[in-house]
Every structure is written in structure tokens, then in C-alpha cells.
Design a protein around this nucleic acid. Structure first.
Lengths: 141, 141
DNA sequence: TGCATTTATTTGTTTAAACGATTAATGTAC
DNA sequence: GTACATTAATCGTTTAAACAAATAAATGCA
């Protein structure tokens, strides 16, 4: 049997995590982009030009069960990413973000940043550190 | 601009929250029930017999945007809940959990409890308290 | 009372998630 | 080198999420 405090903490994490993605999702919607698509763009930007495969994107997604092929399809339609066969392994696809994708992401990041403004400052740097550490510890990391 | 620590903490919350619902969702799938359906059953159980309206369920859902009418439809099919017109306001529907629903929920709770076993003990009661408090404070509560 | 407004739920429709099956390329054992 | 297994991505189909619109009852009020 688990303690009340355990469930309260878990509940806070779940509710807050979903709430944030919901809210951010609504903001992104104005720009005609979904949360998973935004997620992929950020992963690609993090690559700093290095290509990444569909599978690697999958592993880094928040919504792990998403169908990355179809998300990339949508981003291709908008010309925000490139998809080409990996030269060393033709089964793989090399995905990269385009210049247009980076520009679009810049706008999206600004919008999302505005959402987070309201929370920035609620916790001190030390508290933020503690929070991240506690969650990792909870997961056994 | 936000601090690195802020984003790290937020990221932990989001990833962890989604990961837990994903994992629990997979466990529930074996029982032919979805996470939102499970969520509704738990809300109903919490009512301890008191009926609750569709709207009130909606407000307490983790996935706020879910269509509660259709979730209740599914639970009705399985005879886990009852839905009847509210006697004092015929616009409203009174939803209650059935005996079968309580029995089923008992099984589901056991299964979900097993999932949480692995994390119980990773944090002390004091740390759990701190964790919940920090998240609330982050949200400005 | 009559009529507009608000509230509560349901329904219709579009879009995306979930999951399995499929295709194609690579790796491996013989 | 052929045959079989494995890996990577895509596609097909079923199911649920998202959102808008519709229905129906209650409320406010002239």
C-alpha cells in the first residue's frame, strides 16, 4: 500500500504535466502546429544540423507512442523539415530542420516562452534544482 | 528569458507525467479499459455514492478536453456506471458507479498499485511532501 | 406569460492517436 | 552466396480525441 503523500506527489506531477502540454498545445494551435510537431522541431533544432532518424526522434518524444512518420509528413508539407535517405543505411531516413523550420520554431518558442513567464519566479533557482532532483530520484535515476 | 533550471524542472514534470499515464494506460489496456475511463471510475468512487454530473467529472479529469459523455457511454456499455436524469434539474445527468464498477476498479487499482510499487520508497515522506509543495508553488497555488 | 439568454449535455465531423501488418534493407548463420 | 532473422520506416485500419454545432431545459426579466 502506498502513502497518501506518494499519491499526492504523483498526482501533482501527472496533472501539472498534462496541464502544461494542454495549455502550450492551445497556444501552438494558433500557429497551425500541434504539440508533437513542435516537439519534433525542438528535437531537430537540438541536433544543430546533424541529421537524426525517425527512430531516434521517437525515443526522444514526450508522447512516445506518436507515429513519427506521419508527424514528419506534416512538417514536410509545411517545408519545415527535410527527409532524405541515410547514405550509409538505406533503411533509415535522415531528418533535418530547414531554415524555415528554424524561423518558425523561433516564433513558437517566443509564444511558449510567454506562457512560461507567469511561472518564472515562483520558485528560486535552488527550489527548481530540488524539484528536478526529487523527480529524478522518484523515478530511480 | 527563463533559466536552464526552470526548463529542466518543467521538462521533468512533463516527461514524467506523460510517462506515468502511458505506462498505466498500457496496464489498463489488458483489462480493456482506457486511462480516461479509469480516471472517471476513480472520480465516481471518490463520490462515495453521491451522484455527480458530466460537467463536474469534466472539471476533475486529468485530460480536461476529453468528451465525458462518450467516456460514460463506454462505461455504461460495460455496466460499470449508471446514468440517470437529475431529479432537480433535467438538463443534468447524475452519474454513479455500480457495484460491478467498484469491483472492477478494485482490480484496476491493484494492477496500478503494482506499477507504483517500484517507485514507492525512492523518496521519503518528507521528500514527497516537498515535491508536492514545490509543484504547487510553481503553479502559483 | 413570453422570449431571449444561459447552462448542460449530446451529437456530428474532422483530425490524430493507437496498433498491427507490410515493405524494404541489412545483418547473420550456414 | 542463399536463406532466415532483424531492423527501420511506412501504410492501413480501427478507435478515440478535438472542436463545433445542435438540442433541450432552466433561468432572468420585461
Amino acid at each position: 500500500m502506498h502513502s497518501k503523500k506518494y499519491y499526492k506527489a504523483i498526482h501533482q506531477i501527472i496533472v501539472t504535466g498534462h496541464w502544461i502540454t494542454d495549455q502550450v498545445g492551445k497556444d501552438l494551435k494558433e500557429y497551425g502546429i500541434t504539440e508533437p510537431q513542435f516537439n519534433v522541431l525542438r528535437i531537430l533544432k537540438g541536433q544543430k544540423g546533424d541529421p537524426i532518424t525517425v527512430q531516434e526522434i521517437q525515443e526522444r518524444m514526450v508522447q512516445r507512442s506518436s507515429n513519427v512518420t506521419r508527424i514528419v509528413d506534416k512538417l514536410l508539407d509545411k517545408q519545415l523539415v527535410l527527409r532524405k535517405e541515410c547514405p550509409t543505411n538505406r533503411r533509415k531516413m535522415d531528418i533535418t530542420i530547414t531554415e524555415k523550420g528554424l524561423e518558425e520554431l523561433q516564433k513558437l518558442d517566443t509564444k511558449v516562452g510567454q506562457f512560461h513567464e507567469q511561472f518564472q519566479g515562483n520558485l528560486s533557482e535552488e527550489e527548481l534544482e530540488t524539484l528536478a532532483t526529487l523527480i529524478k530520484k522518484l523515478k530511480g535515476e
